[in-house]
Design a protein around this nucleic acid. Structure first.
Length: 494
RNA sequence: GCCGCAUUCGUCUAGGGGUCUAGGACAUCGCCCUCUCAAGGCGAAGAUCGGGGGUUCGAAUCCCCCAUGCGGUACCA
């Protein structure tokens, strides 16, 4: 196959928000398309009207775009193979379905939901394999006429061959054979006139010229049915490629679309927008997701987008399910944050602060940036690191000022010493501050760490903070001294 | 139940008959650096390659069986 004819699609249904599993599927399709110079198509499979979630579509598109997965054809973009919403393609499905019925490859089924339920119940009780009993497949012309005359609602089912086996190749799993006896006469067209996934998917993939179907593993079992459908239409079956499932961090189950809240465990993020809100960089998620089910050489793990496009190869996609490791993502995210350019990081920090109602300015953020860049796993870590810079008065327990093996008196004295010492510093720069404070510590014959501890608390309200000299410098002499004063006051009154 | 797929350190993986006394990464632990926390540097521990049979001079790598896990078995996708 010539590579420029590659056409792949991501075909979510608007029944929920963009999930990382879906994003990974989209990513692999996108990567493959870009690698081959092919087309990446977004198609919306909105055939289930009962599960439709109105704001899922904007979320889906925003999530894909946030990750940089722009589509060549689809909603808001257009293309020559539209419409790209299945709900706008009903006439196609009806037409092809009619054709199948006319050729005797599919048939109308008039069974009521009640009859189907009763049938399943009976199968369950008798421990028989579940499945449609093909009641309507062998109706006489007379019976059909009766049903039609009564205006009974009907669905269309595919007449699966009762003998033989269906075989196909999956790019990742190899050759798969399924006995046709295992297959059910699946519904193609629902009684509301909408197609099922199977019908719509097969018709659209064919009509849209899709060459490779790459999707989640949960579809693997329905491929034989699709193959039979392609054969019924006389169409060529696109290359099938089923991606391994993404497991939750325990490795015990599928990473659920619903949030599992395990007491004591951190919240499990599953939707792309949640990762965004939690302060992950899109480029980090992008890189991380690429590695869930694919590897380059077992050594290299960091790839930017263009490098990934260059190097991505379907042959190295894994076939076994992989647990989603939040710890590894965190590490990778931190790595990405650290590797950001100065202005880039500052820009993202500024956004994060603004989003949290902190009115910072770029100049200050630029000053802050070197103090915090190595201390953030996600952008969410920023606010607690720097919030003390943006308040007038610190609120903390004065007892925090008293360091280990220290008492109130000695701490008070240290605060006074620190203030006196800093007042003397003319040029309030990191180096001069450090020099003065270190001098003072040795004058007092104290370990530097011990002397700095109460100052840190006085100035930030916390025992853990960004580097102290830098903090003092950015705070400025006046505010720094005021905070030392305030600390002295607080402690002496406690 | 039936069908399908999967199975290498806790986790993600490298590995495609000998170079594997199984390599890398995250997490863990220790030491160093150090104003706290990080980051960084160095090092340690961690997998008899799910189990059992074969094939072969030789198997993590090929074949068979079993176990376990996951998925499917809808007028949901």
């Amino acid at each position: 196959m010539s590579s420029d004819s590659v056409r792949v699609r991501f075909a979510p249904s608007p029944t929920g928000y963009l999930h990382v599993g879906g994003a990974r599927t989209a990513l692999y399709n996108w990567l493959f398309a870009r690698h081959c110079g092919g087309k990446f198509i977004l198609r919306i499979e909105d055939t289930d009207r009962t599960r439709y979630v109105p704001d899922s579509l904007p979320d889906l598109m925003a999530g894909l775009r946030w990750l940089g997965l722009y589509w060549d054809e689809g909603p808001e973009v257009g293309g020559d193979y539209g419409p790209y919403f299945q709900s706008d393609r009903l006439p196609f499905y009806q037409k092809y379905c009619d054709q199948l019925v006319a050729e005797g490859k599919a048939y109308r089924c008039y069974c009521t939901p009640e009859r189907l339920d009763a049938m399943r119940e009976e199968q369950r009780v008798n421990k028989q394999p579940p499945g449609y009993d093909r009641h309507c497949r062998f109706l006489t012309q007379k019976q059909i006429a009766e049903y039609e005359a009564e205006g009974c609602p009907w669905v269309v089912r595919l007449a699966i061959p009762t003998k033989g086996a269906t075989e196909y190749d999956d790019l990742f799993r190899g050759h798969i054979t399924v006995d046709n006896q295992q297959l059910d006469d699946l519904v193609l067209l629902k009684s509301d006139g909408f197609p099922t996934y199977h019908l719509a998917n097969v018709i659209d993939d064919h009509l849209m010229g899709i060459t490779h179907i790459m999707r989640g593993d949960e579809w693997l079992a329905s491929v034989p049915k699709h193959v039979l459908l392609y054969q019924a239409f006389g169409w060529q079956v696109p290359v099938q490629a089923h991606l391994p499932t993404i497991l939750d961090p325990s490795g015990k189950g599928k990473l659920s679309k619903r949030k599992k809240r395990i007491p004591g465990e951190p919240e499990m993020l599953t939707y792309v927008h949640e990762f965004k809100e939690a302060g992950y960089l899109p480029e980090a998620l992008f890189n991380f997701l690429a590695l869930v089910g694919w590897s380059y050489d077992g050594q290299t793990e960091y790839f930017n987008q263009s490098r990934l496009v260059e190097v991505f190869d379907l042959e190295r996609v894994n076939k076994s399910p992989a647990a989603f490791s939040y710890e590894k993502l965190d590490h990778m995210n931190a790595e990405y944050i650290r590797s950001l350019g100065m202005n880039d990081l500052a820009g993202r920090m500024l956004q994060e602060l603004l989003a949290n109602g902190i009115k910072a300015d770029l100049a200050t953020v630029l000053d802050l940036e070197p103090l915090v860049r190595e201390r953030m796993r996600t952008l969410k870590d920023l606010v607690p690191l720097v919030d003390t810079f943006f308040v007038d008065e610190l609120d903390y327990d004065p007892q925090l000022l008293i360091g280990k093996k220290m008492d109130r008196e000695s701490t008070l004295n240290m605060l006074a010493q620190a203030k006196a010492c800093l007042s003397e510093v003319e040029l309030f720069e990191e180096e001069t501050i450090e020099e003065a404070l270190r001098n003072q510590a040795s004058v007092l014959d104290m370990g530097a760490g011990k002397f700095f501890a109460p100052i840190r608390v006085a100035v930030t309200g916390k025992t853990v903070s960004p580097p102290m000299f830098g903090t003092l410098k950015i705070l400025g002499k006046e505010r720094s001294l005021a905070r030392l004063d305030a600390a002295y006051e607080k402690l002496s009154q406690s």
